[in-house]
């Protein structure tokens, strides 16, 4: 017994050492990623959360004022309306992008001629910056010189489309511009899904005499569900990140009528010297994103693994 222990201990040590040596280059290669995770994805995130419990104004201070900043946050009209705007925007934008993207994918899937041309047209806005999108739509929707004026000159003097300067409707113009940019993305992803459907499945539906629209609704749509869920998550994350488009298109106006949380955070951090308040808003944003992601991660990654076991 003693002998065995005596010989096996150095052997184990040697094995561990050679294993370590063979993994060493890989470990070194992972250092940049590790640094990014430690300093940014964990460090900066924790720092922001910490600041949300402090009274920091222009510079960060590390006192502890409990939930004061959060209390203040939910008493701040700018933040409350921002939250409301982002909810309205989010629902309309996600629903609109999914519906238009799905329809485009289905229609393109009908073996149309010039398929490549159509796809290129529907997807090109996605290649551009939100800043470009915002500026174009800001100009196009300009009530004095843009679309409204043109339609009026065409002989519809009572035509009115001044949403971009209308406090109650400006959010809808953001929705339009954002759908214009993202519908092609949804189309491209769903089209890939449609093309992945087994050709024999389509043959089976023809033998069974199922009408085409019914095939899409009852058979294809359920097949695409996981894909739709993933796309919805992508769009939802884009909603939480919504900043550039607003800055370029409406600057949050008129008044506060198109303010959004991401912009509220940026303004408080870098312009209004309200670091504590900005950090609290950022933390709320983080919690919202996490609560959107959690069920999806569970459904897509954790549950399937359990089922497999």
């Amino acid at each position: 017994m003693v002998d065995v222990a005596a010989t096996s201990a150095p052997q184990a040590w040697l094995r561990a050492r050679s294993r370590l040596l063979s993994q060493l280059p890989a470990a070194i290669a992972l250092l940049p990623a590790a640094a990014a995770v430690v300093f940014v994805y964990i460090g900066a995130l924790a720092w922001t959360v910490r600041l949300s419990f402090s009274s920091s104004k222009m510079l960060p201070v590390f006192d502890f004022v409990g939930l004061n900043q959060y209390q203040r946050l939910f008493g701040t009209e700018r933040f409350v309306v921002s939250t409301w705007h982002i909810l309205v925007f989010g629902i309309l934008y996600i629903a609109g992008s999914l519906i238009i993207g799905f329809l485009l994918a289905v229609f393109i899937d009908q073996r149309v001629r010039l398929e490549g041309v159509f796809r290129t047209i529907f997807l090109y806005p996605y290649a551009m910056s939100f800043i470009v999108t915002g500026l174009v739509w800001q100009w196009f929707l300009n009530p004095e010189l843009g679309l409204q004026k043109t339609v009026r000159d065409l002989g519809f003097p009572s035509f009115s489309f001044d949403w971009i300067v209308d406090q109650d409707k400006v959010v809808f113009t953001l929705v339009i511009a954002a759908i214009w940019q993202s519908a092609g993305l949804v189309m491209a992803i769903l089209l890939a899904g449609l093309r992945g459907v087994d050709a024999e499945l389509w043959k089976a539906t023809r033998i069974d005499a199922i009408p085409t629209w019914r095939v899409y609704v009852s058979i294809i749509l359920p097949i695409l569900t996981p894909m739709l869920a993933t796309v919805s998550i992508l769009l939802a994350v884009a909603v939480a990140k919504l900043y550039d488009l607003v800055v370029a298109m409406t600057k949050g106006g008129p008044g506060l009528s198109s303010e959004v949380p991401a912009k509220f955070i940026m303004d408080n951090f870098f312009e209004r010297s309200n670091v504590g308040l900005g950090a609290a808003a950022a933390t709320i944003l983080l919690i919202s994103v996490a609560s959107i992601l959690a069920p999806w991660i569970y459904a897509e990654h954790i549950r399937p693994q359990r089922v497999r076991k």
Binding site: A34, V40, W47, T48, V237, Y243, I265, A279, L285
Partner: peptide, 23 residues
Amino acid sequence: LFVILLLGAFIPYQVFLYPLVRM
């Protein structure tokens, strides 16, 4: 490391920006 990186992709930049500027 990989899981954290992936999750990080979903988080809005605003959550990291201020501390990063300080760093």
